[in-house]
Amino acid sequence: MSETILNVQGLTVDIPLAAGTLQAVRGIDFELKRGETLCIVGESGSGKSLTSLAVIGLLGKRLKVGASKLEFEGRDLRSLTRKQMQALRGDRMAMIFQEPMTSLNPAYTIGDQLAEALQLHRKVSKAEAMARAADLLGKVGITAAESRLQQYPHQLSGGLRQRVMIAMALMCEPDLIIADEPTTALDVTIQAQILRLLADLKREMNLALILVTHDLGVVARIADKVAVMYAGEIVESGTAKEIFDAPSHPYTRGLLDCIPVPGKTRPGEPLGSIPGIVPSLIGDVSGCAFRSRCVLARETCSGRIPKRSASGEHTYRCIQETLVSEVA
């Protein structure tokens, strides 16, 4: 067994609003080992981005984060001071964001911004930091790295900027990288390149990777483990194979039905869709949050929903005793 990098149990994020408390993340558990890729999948508003921001400690002060366990490399993140958390951020854990076009500071060169990431955490000279930056730019597939260092973000394309963001995340050789929809803003060919790059880097540097996405195609390509989030909960989690082969929660099933399968989906045949919208999470939420959109919903769905084990680490939250994949 390789070492556990991140252990999250019962993570909650509450957003106080005028109308009441919005329970955006409602008690989620996951564990991540070195060398593993966890994909957190879900639609907009499912709480997947909030989850990743909560782990790295970048949520606004207004948002309340709770957890029964929030351990990073054996250290309890909840007990760390702001300064200690700051020392960890960018060093041991790094983050890549969705919008490469706006995630780099327009006022500074690529080199300055990359070097800063290293110099904030290591006592190195600017020249040493720049050398490492050039080295990493090469590693993330940017040619003429030396001259790129002198350029400003607005001189680079979206794909290049996302590579720069990845290089920035790697500057201190972190143990954990959280990538929040890193390919959403990029066009399809670039998406594939960036995903391959992330997968290669993860293997090469033996780090843990959390990839937040709404794109199951991305998941299929890169994930070791998958956590499907719906309305602030993980409704199903397991290995990528388990999730794709035997989706056990109606929501996961619905998500998979939305994707055309080459050779199986005939041209012209309508793709699946999930009717309805994500319910409001303001105030007390009870029962299964998916029941208003679920084809298999029963009266008991408004009660307590057990966490069931399908096989091994594969778990799901549903009132149905038999696997959905067998029922449908």
Binding site: F97, T102, L120
Partner: peptide
């Protein structure tokens, strides 16, 4: 509110 401010914080800048 800009994304690059979040990036700076994610780097561990004070």
């Amino acid at each position: 509110n800009a994304d690059y401010i979040r990036t700076a914080r994610a780097k561990g800048a004070g």
